[in-house]
Design a protein around this nucleic acid. Sequence first.
DNA 1: GTCTATAGCCGGATAGAC
DNA 2: GTCTATCCGGCTATAGAC
Lengths: 222, 222
Amino acid sequence: MIVMDRDQGRKPRKSAARGSYAVGDERRARILDVAVEHFAQWGFHASSLARIAKDVGITQGGLLHHFRSKEDLLVSVLRHSDEQDVARFFSLEPRTAVEAFESIVDLARFNSERPGRTRMFNVLAAEAGELGHPAHDYFVRRYRAVVGQIAGTLRAAVERGELGPDTDCERVASEIAAVMDGLQLQWSLAPATYDMPGRLHGYLDRLLRSLTADGSGLPANG
Amino acid sequence: MIVMDRDQGRKPRKSAARGSYAVGDERRARILDVAVEHFAQWGFHASSLARIAKDVGITQGGLLHHFRSKEDLLVSVLRHSDEQDVARFFSLEPRTAVEAFESIVDLARFNSERPGRTRMFNVLAAEAGELGHPAHDYFVRRYRAVVGQIAGTLRAAVERGELGPDTDCERVASEIAAVMDGLQLQWSLAPATYDMPGRLHGYLDRLLRSLTADGSGLPANG
DNA sequence: GTCTATAGCCGGATAGAC
DNA sequence: GTCTATCCGGCTATAGAC
């Protein structure tokens, strides 16, 4: 979802002769997709390599050819998810606070269209509170990165005079992340009846009004 | 945490002769306390009756004398937790919006003093998004009750003229619940460095200002 | 790259002794 | 009320055939 540890990427294939690697990568990508759904349903501890493999259409042994352990699969899934979102949402810097807030609503809307991945992050972030959880450090760093990135955007807006000079950017950024997570949690329990991006828009609109001198909010269709 | 299904309580003991039942209830209560910590660390699926029993100081067989199954233990833990909170926070109706918001901050402060229970609700609420999870219906109902209760309090404040007449009480109530959950999630990842009730106070203060005509907020020490 | 087979351990639940 | 013993199955990971 946010830029993190970009240098730890999987080592690149040495060659692409005869296209054989592309096939392997497709299988690998399919495993990651299936694993997302399982981690969403079961969390990490209660997910099972055998069940994941069965859903992919291979055996557990076959799966472990691609990922050397369950933990390796988890971190690969998390890194893969982040890479997708970086490409989708953080390739360019927002030029105004309104633009920044609109792209946050965009992200929430995108998240509502991939419930598996969204639920996976809900479950794993909660599980990972435990020290020693395989994704604990990952999520600690992730929230630092997310909050830091939003806070940086807010600070830039303060400097441009769009937001009040007394804005506590770190706190507001952390609050925005909290609202996103909390809305996603309620949405996960009843997705059909809960307009998650709409709720987030409402919150950000009110937030923006209270942070600007003239009380202007967020346009209706972010 | 909130009034729910009060009629489903465990059937009362038939007698209290010679005080033997009190001893049994103490053991039962101890199991519930330990189970909270385990569900917090592992969620439901990955918790183990044998490990819980070991922490209590009995065997798995002994535990299953008190709770006939793992699922029975889960629902007992959830009901027990709600009963505690009802007694603690919802025995009397708040008389003003400020009082209501202050009691929500109180609840957050109390939650920060019992990290196990708080984390348990984080993890289980996320897990329970899955249809068929043993606590799915429980959490769906729970959020309905929580949001409904807060919304009712807000509506009363609107009628007293404390909040603007255009306040969307349901949406605001749902947002408050979301902020509480989201803040708890971040706090769980780094409890020592995160002033969770303080953050919530800051949010509710700004929220109150934007909902009142005169822009008055929340006193400093809710 | 995927399979089968297997090791070694842990899971929930039941039965029955004390 | 707690124990031991046991059933049956699932778990991760490894080894080696193809």
